[in-house]
């Protein structure tokens, strides 16, 4: 009679232990699985890229040539295009995205908040091919007829801008690709920033308002410092998408394996090159060069994420956390 509850307790405890260890084991397996997949991807990329890297060596990174006929391949043009388009896209999308988030959390009347928020999330749900087609059929002709000619005229005679915006106005090109990318990464930055802005304790903001701060001062000195890690995380997510975006870019970048000084000139990115050429790549070196491009994109993404982590760590250290 007395032993029974004790026995029951013991079995139940044992059961809990079993469930708990099973649970721990399952989560650990999931984490290891990700690492295994990642390792597998790296291994197969390296293996596939070896013939090309062995043949061209360091030249592969610095050469602009991309000649499938003579099998001379170099990745400089796609690397340049990937970095430049992503950088411009972030330069446009980051301020606008944070601006949207500030508006939604600090300024916007509550009625409109949900509508605008949903609209931004819908932007993130549009497939990239739609962005590409819109860019080709709508944005590019508009830029070609109404925007680029005046940019070219305005930049003429001004030292650096003259090269940066040299004509002719094709409509498609590096700048158009960057603009499309900025629209595509905007929802990531805006909605993540909004979510983290909402985590700022109301007491902090109210105190600031209470001592007479303006909205700008509250955002600048309370909200942004409190949430900067989240905002940077959102920006990195957006940058990751910009670096890897394929379809939309392929449609509007002009797909030329050359590095031009002008942003209006056609260029190419790593993922656009792979998407364009992989199906018809005949010959081992050609295929291997495309896989090597994939490896380079992997490395670029890794470096960018590592740099972001480093930046965050340094920020935290400066604050003595």
């Amino acid at each position: 009679m007395i032993a029974e509850p004790a026995l029951e307790r013991r079995t139940r405890t044992r059961q809990f232990v079993r469930i708990d260890s099973g649970y721990r084991w399952a989560t650990r397996a999931s984490a290891v699985f990700v690492l295994l997949v990642l390792g597998g991807v790296i291994l197969s990329l390296v293996e596939g890229a070896l013939p090309a890297l062995g043949t061209y060596g360091f030249d592969f990174l610095t050469s602009q040539r991309w000649n499938p006929v003579t099998e001379k391949f170099g990745a400089a043009a796609p690397i340049y295009g990937t970095i430049v388009t992503s950088f411009i896209a972030m330069a446009i999308a980051l301020p606008i995205g944070i601006g949207i988030a500030v508006f939604l959390t600090e300024v916007c009347p509550p009625v409109a908040r949900r509508t605008i928020g949903t609209a931004i999330e819908l932007l993130a749900g549009i497939p990239s091919i739609i962005y590409g087609i819109w860019g080709l059929f709508t944005l590019a002709p508009f830029l070609q007829e109404h925007v680029q000619p005046s940019i070219i005229d305005a930049a003429e005679g001004i030292a650096i801008l003259e090269t940066l915006f040299a004509g002719p106005p094709y409509g498609i090109g590096m700048l158009t690709a960057a603009l499309i990318l900025s629209v595509m990464v905007l929802p990531f930055i805006a909605s993540i920033s909004r979510d983290v802005f909402e985590t700022v304790p109301p007491m902090l903001k109210e105190s600031a308002y209470g001592i007479g701060c303006t909205t700008w001062e509250v955002v600048r000195h309370v909200v942004l410092p409190y949430t900067k890690i989240g905002v940077i995380g959102g920006a990195m997510l957006g940058l990751g998408r910009a670096l890897g975006e394929t379809m939309a870019v392929t449609f509007v970048i002009g797909n030329a394996h050359k590095i031009h000084g002008s942003l209006l000139a056609p260029g190419t990115t790593i993922s656009a090159t792979i998407a364009n050429e992989f199906t018809e790549a005949v010959g081992d070196l050609y295929t291997s060069s495309l896989i090597a491009l994939g490896l380079i994109l992997f490395a670029i993404t890794f470096l960018v994420l590592a740099a972001a982590r480093l930046m965050l760590a340094r920020l935290e250290r400066r604050e003595g956390k």
Binding site: W66, N67, P68, V69, I172, N255, A256, H257, N276, E277
Partner: peptide, 9 residues
């Protein structure tokens, strides 16, 4: 696919 001297792809 060839190494195009000029043009848009």
């Amino acid at each position: 696919a060839v190494e195009w001297p000029i043009g848009l792809g």
